[in-house]
């Protein structure tokens, strides 16, 4: 699954930029800056799917686009037809996992506690989205990994410091914290976006590409 395909790039860069809902207007500028700074994957809210269509032409070859916030099979269908190549759900839902599998769409089910993580793995999801990871802190990383077994784990909502901790612990990828993009919504100062993006990519590059755990 990670050889080529939508998750191939992610296994190299190991960072997901997650655009908060309503960032559509400025998405092209922000996404372009992120790509230039080494982000190769970004997700958009299920309410902002039109952005994915807009980004496909200028950035399609260098980044993959996913969707987050999906709750229903209908969301998945719409996301896929808009160009989303993978989906993150805030909740662990068996129905959703199955629907994604039918559409051959990599799907990460939301979970937080070790119990939820184990359940989500059992659904047959591509992987698990630890969400919101920062609630339990970076010391939780090895425990979450232990609960996930060999499933791909994405930690949601992390700071640059958290990136290193989670990736070193073996997480497949990390979702950059809303602090990366939050102020883009309100036409905040995008001048700092490039700097912030660099902080994240520098951390991820230090850790290097993802290696499957030795079984």
């Amino acid at each position: 699954m990670t050889d080529g395909g939508p998750l191939g790039m992610l296994s190299e860069t190991r960072l997901l930029a997650s655009f908060p809902r309503g960032t559509t207007a400025r998405a092209i500028v922000a996404a372009t800056i992120l790509v230039e700074e080494g982000f190769a994957a970004m997700t958009f809210d299920v309410g902002d799917l039109d952005v994915i269509e807009k980004l496909a032409t200028p950035l399609g070859g260098r980044a993959t686009f996913g969707v987050h916030g999906v709750r229903t099979a209908g969301d998945l269908t719409r996301a896929q037809s808009a160009g989303a190549e993978y989906a993150l759900a805030p909740i662990g839902s068996k129905t959703l996992a199955q629907a994604a599998a039918r559409r051959s769409m990599p799907f990460f089910a939301g979970a937080l506690t070790p119990g939820e993580i184990a359940t989500a793995v059992g659904f047959g999801a591509t992987g698990v989205l630890i969400h919101p990871a920062d609630v339990l802190g970076t010391t939780y990383a090895p425990h979450a990994l232990a609960a996930a077994g060999s499933a791909l784990l994405i930690a949601g909502g992390s700071s640059p410091y958290g990136v290193t901790q989670w990736l070193n612990a073996g997480a497949f990828a990390v979702v950059a914290d809303p602090s990366l993009l939050a102020d883009i919504t309100g036409y905040g100062e995008i001048g700092y976006l490039r700097d912030r993006a660099r902080n994240y990519t520098a951390e991820a590059e230090r850790v290097g590409p993802w290696r499957p755990p030795a079984s």
Partner: peptide, 28 residues
């Protein structure tokens, strides 16, 4: 292409074009 953002409100306030280049980038 070169991508830039123009802030119209700030331009009015400054009485001058407020334009920021955001990227020089390949389209693909």
């Amino acid at each position: 292409s070169i991508l830039a953002e123009v802030d119209l409100a700030a331009s009015d306030e400054a009485g001058d074009l407020v334009l920021r280049t955001c990227a020089l980038d390949r389209l693909d």
